[in-house]
Design a protein around this nucleic acid. Structure first.
Length: 130
RNA sequence: AUGGCUGUUCGUCCCAUCGCUCUUUGAAAUACAGGGGAGGAAAGUCCGGACACCACAGAGUGCCAUGCUUCCUAACAGGAAGGUUCAUACUUGUAUGAAACAGAUAGUGCCACAGAAAAUAUACCGCCAUGCUCCGGUGUGGUAAGGGUGAAAACGUGAGGUAAGAGCUCACGUCGGUCUGAGGUGACUCAGGCGGAGGUAAACCUCAUGGGGUGCAAGACCAAAUAUACCGGCUAUUGGGUUACUCGCUCAGGCCGGGGGGUAGGUUGCUACAAUUGAAUGGCGACAUUCAAUGCAGAUAAAUGAUGGGAAUAGCGCUUGCGUUAUACAGAAUCCGGCUUACAGAACAGCCUUUUUU
RNA sequence: CGCCCGUUCGUCUAGUUGGCCUAGGACGCCAGGUUUUCAUCCUGGAAAUCAGGGGUUCGAAUCCCCUACGGGUGA
């Protein structure tokens, strides 16, 4: 399975779900990215995500947009291992990526961090620690 | 040539791979294919409109905004062309720049400190006349030229006049008011007459003009989802009470509608018009009219991108054609017209400084 | 996206009908005194270009305009 697309159905657009993630979910940190995640029963989509950059750290809308785009690209290219793991277990996961750094970092660095987070999540999931 | 200022225009480009969003054909749907996809400021939300809903007899008062004139415009606190005043420059009547630039002669208030006095004028030192005198002064009256104070001192200069003085009179000026004549669409200008002179309206205010309120989270429709205070209607067919019974009345229930509470999506509004580009005509100009061509974002936890390679421009380094670094300000959210603010660099036009050559 | 409000010593604030305000008070800070010492207490001092810039005025924290930052609110 080599699906690099990220249509709207794989993004979170529901306010109730978002507040659930931030209130009930657990966190995985790898500076400068903070991932809140919440595990659920399988409902057709293995993964749903959202990306956020706080306005507190970046006043300019352009800088926020750039970081969100970079994070989305990094996730889009590396999401498949976690997706297969979840699909095999018949569960789905909602993840919220929040950028907590105060300076813009390069794409390569961001990609490494996001891969690390996704690897940790899939490992934990295979062991059943979530 | 170099540097600076002002104005106008532009404000990185190409290819590959992987994606996002809208739309068209086809289609149950996905997938595939074709097409479109940020700006000059999209920003600030400072003005003005369109559009929508709510409110609304008429008039007045109040509140807010604007404030030289004419024009442009859908409208404006915007723009164009002019007028006036002020500042600067010199060629001394021109150029450049600036102006919340209606009214202080409608009325009220304020003008700290200093100063005699801050606006009905007044009198500390003075000046003049005169009374008294111990000849040092002092009382009374007149006066406001000079001194000192202040941001500002009753219009400025000169002459006449006078006991001393004073727009008291005259000449030349400054300012604004009013009347007459001339020019101009008008602000205003010129000439003459009359009467006049502190400032402050970004103090209250007066005059003129304009303004109903709320904003696309406006509003419309569809689907879902239900506790029900309360109100109205229906109840052939439900039950209780009243009654001997029927009708009637009444209470409860049911249904419908309203009202009010709470949950939470979708569609629409939504992108084709004060539209953009080009030409012609009219106008000093802002701009208008006509003709032709074009179709040019529409997201909603919110798309318009990421990576790699190449080009262009700029800086740095030296091997002088290679390496390396950087590519401004900044991201639509109902839509337009302005204003304000941010902005690497490039091009064009005008003006100024310095240097070189003829 | 729309609408509204605020910004004054290190902190919390007063003053916002223009002049007494180059700005008052409390807490905190510094120095001295009191005490065997510390605290309390007493005395004195420093600390603000009133968010930034421009304008009106003789004179601005105050009036007007622009900018920056912070906050509130609207189904």
């Amino acid at each position: 399975m080599s699906n690099f697309s990220l249509p709207k159905s794989e993004r979170i657009c529901d306010q109730v779900l978002i507040s659930e993630i931030f209130e009930l979910g657990n966190t995985v940190k790898d500076f400068p990215v903070f991932a809140h995640y919440l595990l659920k029963d399988f409902n057709g989509k293995p993964l749903q995500v959202l990306f956020s950059v706080p306005k507190r750290n970046f006043k300019s809308a352009i800088k926020r947009n750039v970081l969100k785009r970079k994070m989305r690209e990094a996730y889009r290219l590396n999401k498949n291992t976690l997706a297969t793991v979840l699909k095999n277990k018949k569960q789905s996961m909602n993840i919220a990526f929040v950028y907590t750094g105060k300076e813009i970092c390069t794409f390569e660095k961001l990609e490494k961090k996001i891969i690390a987070i996704l690897d940790r999540l899939s490992e934990m999931h295979e062991k059943g620690l979530c």
